[in-house]
Design a protein around this nucleic acid. Structure first.
Lengths: 203, 203
DNA sequence: ACCTGAACACCGTTCAAGT
DNA sequence: ACCTGAACACCGTTCAAGT
C-alpha cells in the first residue's frame, strides 16, 4: 500500500498499475492478489491511508479553530499526495480510519452546541468545499511552478477585443500580481465557518 | 458526442469506450479518430456539453438569486448526468462554452459590487462547494432508490456499544426520518451566499 | 473524406502449477 | 502461504489499405 502511494506521488495515479507495482516490489503482478482483493481494494486502502494523514480535531481548541486546522491540514495532505482528493471523494466512505475521523468531527460540532442533524450538514458543507476546492485547484495550476501571471496574460491576449469583458477584468488583475491560492481557500473557508458561528449564536 | 453522453447516462462513464461508442454509431472504433483527436478530447467535449446545460445567470434577478439558481441548475444537471461532475472538475477548464459561462458569472458578481479579485474568489468558492457536494453525494447514496433510513440503521448496528458516540447520535437521527439531501445542499449554499452578502455590505 | 481490418502495447484478473 | 507463467478478455491508438 505504501509502495503504491509512493508510485502515485511520483508518477500520478495513472502510473499505479498492478504490473508496475509488482515491479517495484520485486514480484509479479499476479502475486499482488494474495494480499489485496483487487485494484479497487488497493485504491481504497490508499485513500484511507491518505485520510489518516489529516490531523484529527484536538480537544483543546474551540470548534471553529479545530475545523479550520482540519481544513488546512487536509489541504497540506492534498498537496503532498496530489492524487488523494480525487480518490477520497470518489469512493464510498468506509475505511477503518474514516469512522474515527467522522466521529471526532461530529463530536466537536455537537459539543459546540450544534444539533446532530446540523452537525452532519456542517460536516458535509465543509468537506464539500475542501475537496471541491482541491479538485478545481489541480486544474487551475496543474504543475507547481506554473507562472500564474503568464497564464493571466495568455488569457488576456486570447480574448477578442470587447468580448468577455468581466473575464478580462479579472485576468487583468492577475496579470501583474500572482494568484493567492491560500487566500482564495481561506476566503471560502472562513465564509462557511463564520456562517456556522452566526447560526450557533442564533439557535 | 451526444451518443457518448447517452452511453454514459445509461451505463456510467466506465461504459464509454471507443469500441462501444463505435458499436452504437454503427462504425468501427478506429473510425472515431476521424472525428475526435482521442478519448481525452471526447471526454472534454462531453464535459463542455454538460456545462452548456447549466442555466446561465440571467440579468433580471439580483446577484444572490442568480447565483442560487445557477447552483440549483447545476445540481439538476448532475442528477441527469451523473458522470458530469467528476468529468467537469477533473478537467482543465477550456471548452468554448466555459469562457462564456465564467464571463457571465463574474460579470454578475462585479456588477453587484464585488471587486474583480473578490468576484473570482467567490466564483471559486461557490463552484468548489457545488462540485464537491455532488461528488460526496454520489458516494453517500450511490443508487437513487437507496433507503437512507435502512443505511442509518445498518450503521447503527455496526457500531460497537459505547464507541463512536457522536456518529451514533447522528445515525440515530436519520434512523426514523429520511435524509434531506436538498436541505443539506441549500444549507451550505446559503451559508456561502449569506456571507458574501454580508461582505458586500461591509465593503 | 471517411471507413475497415489488423496489429501493437498496454490493462486487470484468473488459475493451474510450482516451492 | 505465497509466487510464477501463461492465458483471457478487454483497453486506446496507429496505420496501411480500401471506397
Amino acid at each position: 500500500m505504501r509502495a503504491a502511494m509512493e508510485l502515485a506521488d511520483e508518477g500520478g495515479i495513472g502510473s499505479v498499475t498492478m504490473r508496475e507495482l509488482g515491479r517495484r516490489l520485486g514480484v509479479e503482478a499476479a502475486s499482488l492478489y494474495n494480499h489485496v482483493a483487487g485494484k479497487d481494494d488497493l485504491l481504497a486502502g490508499m485513500a484511507d491511508l491518505a485520510a489518516a494523514e489529516i490531523d484529527l480535531p484536538s480537544g483543546d481548541v474551540d470548534w471553529k479553530e479545530a475545523m479550520r486546522r482540519r481544513a488546512i491540514s487536509a489541504r497540506a495532505v492534498f498537496l503532498q499526495h496530489r492524487w488523494a482528493a480525487a480518490l477520497m471523494d470518489s469512493r464510498v466512505w468506509s475505511g477503518p480510519y474514516s469512522l474515527i475521523y467522522a466521529d471526532r468531527v461530529l463530536g466537536t460540532l455537537i459539543r459546540a452546541g450544534f444539533s446532530p442533524v446540523i452537525a452532519s450538514w456542517a460536516f458535509i458543507a465543509l468537506d464539500s468545499y475542501i475537496y471541491g476546492f482541491e479538485r478545481q485547484r489541480s486544474n487551475f495550476s496543474p504543475s507547481e511552478d506554473v507562472d500564474t501571471i503568464e497564464v493571466a496574460q495568455d488569457v488576456l491576449s486570447a480574448i477578442p477585443e470587447g468580448a468577455f469583458s468581466s473575464l478580462a477584468a479579472v485576468a487583468m488583475e492577475y496579470a501583474d500580481k500572482p494568484y493567492d491560492e491560500d487566500g482564495a481557500f481561506e476566503f471560502g473557508l472562513d465564509m462557511i465557518l463564520d456562517s456556522l458561528e452566526r447560526r450557533l449564536g442564533a439557535d
